[in-house]
Design a protein around this nucleic acid. Structure first.
Lengths: 337, 337
DNA sequence: TTGTACGCGTTATCAC
DNA sequence: GTGATAACGCGTACAA
């Protein structure tokens, strides 16, 4: 079904049909003719050919979403939020996985640009990220989600990392913990850098001990790195009764590694996570963590991007509030050997 | 950058450039000219305009993927498999969520068809599903994944459900269980129907008790339904020492509901799942379940679909093997009151 | 209020 | 081997 066929059956010209079907130009056409055209297009089950539309208008009604890995449980709700927001506006999302690889990110962005996406949502950016350069040069609207880049010319939707870490520390201190270690995330990521900076800031403000051995840096947000970092902290020799982890997966790995050393959580060691991924309430022990609003974050990013498409607007930066969820991986400080 | 601009810089005609850039027609062109064209296209950073390509060829190099909900942990690995397989062939995936809603499925399929997808991967189909009708009428290749429809004219990639249930029952019998209940999945889904049929078949074959009260039917694969079904089984009054759940989420809900009744898993009651979703090894108790190959299944579906695009081939049906993963939610039958 | 004419970038079918 | 030309379906200045 094409405009031409509708035009033939109704007995008008193609361009009349085109105008009648477009709500922006519909008022130019005689209402009675509009009526007939709409009826015919419904009956003939007309659907606009998006390729022709794109070729003509340079818009695809498609946006590219780049994430590290859809298999990582934190991303599906974000993606769902993005997709729901976009769908309501008539956009569709194409999603690509980088596995944290910079080259793959670049080639995905290139591929999306080649497909003429109307915008980009990036959940995979590093703080200094040249994968965006092509997109910025092309003038394609970009929103980063969950993470952000240093230069604030790129719009973003993130959470209040400082507040999250502050609440974790306040909670641990209220339980009597004095020597608190951290497993920090990758410092090339804004979440890693900000959560670590917040930890240092509030640790000092609360007058907690601050020895270098009490921080281990993970090179990736996964369980294996959580395990490795626990080993590193333990090998450091300094005493501590709680570990603040920069995300849930690190915490899950940390708890497993502690158990191998005979250190029970929470009796011997309190452990906290970050993100409140799905299932964190069902693992053993259920995890005390900072809840972020994954779906809402994705949805906000999708809405923000749509506002940017077409018009020249200044970059926006949304910061969502967090919440501390206290479960059973934290307990009062005890006298561990 | 367009073909025209390359043609101008090299000093040949557009169609020559088009042919030189297409590996299928490249041999028609003088190798020296090909060389120059490739060089120029690289330097000018040429990228084919996919809209123009699509308009001309009626192919979009895009395929639509319809799933119930990306937020459900079983789907991300499947999607990842699909995407990886497609990406290797130059295809991109657009994903839509139905939330198990028939109307949404229909409208998503319609939307994808309107976008001119080259094929469809459906993880959301019911056994009798009219949402496919439009697609079948359009002649768009379809592969269903994880589930299948009754009519075997639609290609599919699924797992060996009979074998999975057989292994679960064999395991439970070896632990001394005689009265085994089931929480069956929705019977409109092939997985629900087949796992239930397998249960009935093997229960009879193994000479186990088969009273009607020992089966509860979930209306959806989620934790809440798992809880409800446990209540139903308990209210039935018949004694049983093990519950076979049609999937992991039902099992997770079942264990929680049992705990509320003071029935401990596995000491008082063995519980098994199906799928081996992420985190099932970390929950309390870790879940004995049937492992399916989610990534591989998605990958196989992506490859199968690509084989179908363009050529007229008979439908294929792949059945992947399963594996029983024994963890701590199953234990020898004890004498429960 | 409607029709005419053109072009978006590509590929396919001719002709040379 | 290469060039010329038409066509894919649509939107939009311009003309009527």
């Amino acid at each position: 079904m094409t405009l031409k066929e509708i035009a033939q059956t109704v007995g008008v010209h193609v361009s009349t049909v085109s105008r009648a079907l477009d709500s922006n130009t519909r008022h130019l056409i005689n209402p009675k003719v509009v009526e007939k055209i709409l009826k015919a297009s419904r009956e003939l089950d007309y659907r606009q050919n998006i390729a022709a539309y794109s070729l003509r208008t340079n818009r695809t009604r498609t946006i590219g979403v780049v994430i590290p890995d859809i298999t990582n449980a934190i991303f599906p709700p974000i993606i769902r939020g993005i997709e729901d927001a976009l769908l309501a506006g008539g956009y569709m999302a194409i999603v690509g996985n980088t596995d944290g690889n910079r080259d793959r990110e670049r080639s995905l962005v290139d591929m999306f640009l080649g497909r003429g996406v109307d915008g980009l949502v990036l959940a995979s950016v590093e703080r200094e990220d040249d994968a965006l350069d092509r997109a910025l040069a092309d003038g394609v609207p970009i929103v980063t989600v969950n993470r952000r880049v240093e230069k604030d010319t790129v719009s973003s939707v993130v959470h209040d990392e400082y507040e999250g870490i502050r609440r974790v520390l306040t909670h641990l201190v209220s339980l009597g913990h004095k020597n608190i270690a951290m497993i920090a995330g990758p410092q090339v990521l804004s979440t890693g850098a900000e959560r670590f900076a917040a930890f240092e800031h509030h640790r000092a403000a609360m007058g907690l001990s601050s020895r270098a051995h009490l921080v281990a840096f993970a090179e990736a947000y996964n369980e294996a790195e959580g395990e490795r970092c626990v080993e590193e902290l333990l090998a450091g020799g300094d005493d501590f009764s709680a570990v603040v982890c920069a995300n849930d997966r690190l915490a899950v790995g940390a708890i497993a590694a502690l158990a191998r050393h005979g250190i029970r959580c929470p009796q011997d060691m309190s452990v906290t996570g970050y993100n409140d991924m799905p299932m964190m309430d069902r693992i053993q022990p259920s995890l005390t963590t900072v809840r972020i609003q994954q779906y809402k974050m994705g949805h906000a990013a999708g809405m923000m991007l749509q506002r940017m498409i077409g018009q020249e607007v200044p970059p926006e930066h949304a910061v969502l509030p967090v919440e501390l969820v206290i479960r059973s991986s934290t307990a009062p400080a005890s006298s561990r050997a």
